[in-house]
Amino acid sequence: MYRKEIYVFDRERPVPTVIRNYRESDFSSLIRIQQESFPPPFPSELWWSPEQLRNHVDLFPEGALCIEVNGEIAGSMTGLLVDHDPNHPAHTWSEITDDGYIRNHNPHGNTLYVVDISVRPSYRKLGLGKWLMLSMYDVVVHKGLERLLGGGRMPGYHKKAGEMSAEQYLEAVIKGELADPVITFLLRCGRTPVKVAADYLEDEESCNYSVLMEWKNPFFTRRFERRDKSEILNKRTQYSK
Rank of each mutant, 00 (worst) to 15 (best):
K4F: 08
V8N: 05
D10F: 06
R11P: 02
P14D: 12
P16T: 12
I19E: 05
I19V: 10
N21G: 11
Y22R: 02
Y22D: 03
R23H: 14
S37E: 10
S37V: 02
P39N: 09
P39M: 06
P41C: 14
S44M: 08
L46A: 00
L46Y: 04
W47F: 15
W48C: 10
S49A: 11
P50S: 12
R54N: 12
R54P: 13
N55G: 09
N55W: 00
H56C: 09
H56F: 02
V57D: 11
V57M: 04
P61L: 11
P61R: 08
E62Q: 15
I67T: 03
E68Q: 15
G71F: 10
I73E: 01
A74Y: 00
A74W: 02
G75A: 03
L80W: 12
V82F: 04
D83L: 05
H84N: 12
P89C: 05
E95L: 05
I96N: 00
D99L: 12
D99M: 07
D99H: 15
G100K: 00
R103W: 02
R103N: 15
N106D: 13
P107C: 02
G109D: 06
Y113P: 00
V114M: 02
V115F: 03
S118H: 12
R120P: 01
P121V: 04
P121D: 02
P121A: 10
S122A: 09
K125Y: 15
L126M: 07
G127C: 11
G129R: 04
K130G: 11
L134G: 01
H142S: 14
R147E: 05
L148G: 05
G152P: 00
R153F: 04
M154D: 00
P155H: 06
P155V: 12
Y157Q: 13
K160D: 13
K160R: 14
A161E: 15
A161C: 08
E163K: 10
A166V: 04
Q168C: 05
V173P: 05
I174P: 00
E177L: 13
A179K: 07
D180V: 14
D180C: 08
D180N: 10
P181T: 14
P181M: 12
I183E: 04
L187T: 08
R191K: 08
T192I: 01
V194R: 01
K195P: 01
K195Y: 05
V196R: 01
A197M: 08
A198L: 05
D199T: 11
Y200N: 03
L201K: 00
E202M: 06
E202S: 09
N208P: 08
N217I: 10
N217W: 07
P218H: 06
R226E: 14
D228A: 11
S230D: 13
L233T: 09
N234G: 14
R236Q: 07
R236I: 11
